[in-house]
Design a protein around this nucleic acid. Structure first.
Lengths: 247, 247
DNA sequence: AAGTCGATATCGCCA
DNA sequence: TGGCGATGTCGACTT
């Protein structure tokens, strides 16, 4: 019934009683294990919104950093969850196992009540390494800073994250003729939102520079949607097709 | 070593050989189980971006709908994943267990190579029920449609999702004086983005109505940030503080 | 298949 | 801690 692996890497029980499950889970919380429960349960959430989920078979994971996840057999996203930083709790109520995860600011609570327990595990391990990711907006920025002519001949970057009343501009610089240029970067094909964002930056800078100034706004992305293209045109903004580096 | 629960609800092996793990996983795929593996692994992703993760102890879940999730002991989000609709595959390579999940459009591949296997499970269950959620933007819309005076005395809703060249307006109506009103709803405190969105709708409608028209734009949300408040003011837009229904 | 937008978005950064 | 923007955003809905 109980499988406890050498050195306590994993502790797993099949079809445990609520009390036996409580034991394994409480021990798992103590030694900062990943606790998983597969069983038939109902789920209540109350916080930023409110939700209730009728009984069904689900996979529940409580992490030592305070995150909680309830997964069904479908979908990439959990059906219910709690972000890291929550306090986990396990108890038996009316003979049933209950897992709970709470936090404040905002006040939120997730409660999972089990009608049936198929498998309960406490999994311990270590993970020192971080993900190495390539192809982000930051990579696209580096690409342009290293070769400004990719944007246009004669472009000179002057600052990144330049602050304006509307927020920080991705790349600020000037063109061949010495005109101010605001560059907004997107790693993917863009819709109307990105145009609005660029427009806010251009407006803010033109205001900063007072009346006479002319500020160019250039959107850099692999491509744009039709609606976004028309918005760019309406507002006198420009577009340069460019992708993040591939490798 | 192997725990197979009555009726095959769960099949779990502790510290299996790669071949034994392959067996359990292949059987799990066959009967549409949720397959979980806890072990030391490296993870490769190549598709919309590219990433690599050095060896560490992680919890891997492959769902019967084609979703895949790699979780560390931290964070609500998986460190790597694959959306539903992917094809799962399991095989042994150089004596190591490999799990792979691919899709096309876009061409993406996730590969998990295990150096050590601590626990492998195939979990079967059923879940008929959907989540009942309260407190969304849709709930806020209903609240205003049922009691338009919450927005302002004399407001009359005329349409929801009214189409404009800039997109669909949340609520379109007219005020006491018969002026056109565009209402943009947000369930949470809003920043500059929402103001830009409302502005696009107002501009588009004023253009539609030709020169003489005056269109009011009202942002409805629990609250606004300072910058958003100034943007509202700059563009002659209004704000009404209102939350989605609580229960 | 592509466009658009909401989300209990989450996450990281910075004031 | 709140504001702000990126995300391999995801997911739903519409065209």
């Amino acid at each position: 019934m109980t499988e406890s692996e050498h050195g306590q890497r994993t502790e797993t029980v099949q079809r445990p009683t609520p009390v036996a499950a409580h034991d394994v889970i409480a021990r798992g919380f103590d030694r900062d294990a990943i606790v998983t429960v597969f069983g038939r349960c109902t789920v209540d959430y109350d916080g930023r919104a409110t939700s209730y989920l009728e009984a069904g078979d689900r996979h529940v994971m409580f992490k030592p950093d305070g995150a909680a996840l309830v997964h069904t057999d479908e979908g990439q996203q959990p059906v219910n969850w709690q972000p890291p930083g929550c306090d986990h709790d396990v108890y038996c109520e009316d003979g049933a196992l209950v897992l709970e995860s709470r936090r404040s600011t905002p006040d939120e609570r997730l409660t999972v009540r089990f009608q049936e327990l198929f498998q309960v595990s406490a999994l311990s391990g270590s993970d020192e390494n971080d993900l190495a990711l390539v192809g982000t907006e930051e990579d696209l920025r580096q690409r342009i800073l290293e070769a400004p002519s990719l944007l246009e001949a004669g472009f000179t970057p002057l600052a990144t994250e330049r602050d304006t009343p509307a927020g920080a501009v991705d790349i600020y610089g000037e063109d061949d003729a010495g005109r101010a240029v605001v560059v907004e970067l997107k790693r993917r094909r863009v819709g109307p939102d990105a145009v609005g964002q660029l427009r806010r930056y251009v407006d803010a800078l033109e205001r900063d520079f007072h009346a006479d100034a002319m500020v160019r706004g250039i959107l850099v992305a692999p491509s744009v949607t039709d609606r976004a293209a028309r918005l760019l045109d309406d507002h006198g903004l420009e577009f340069v097709a460019l992708e993040p580096p591939a490798e």
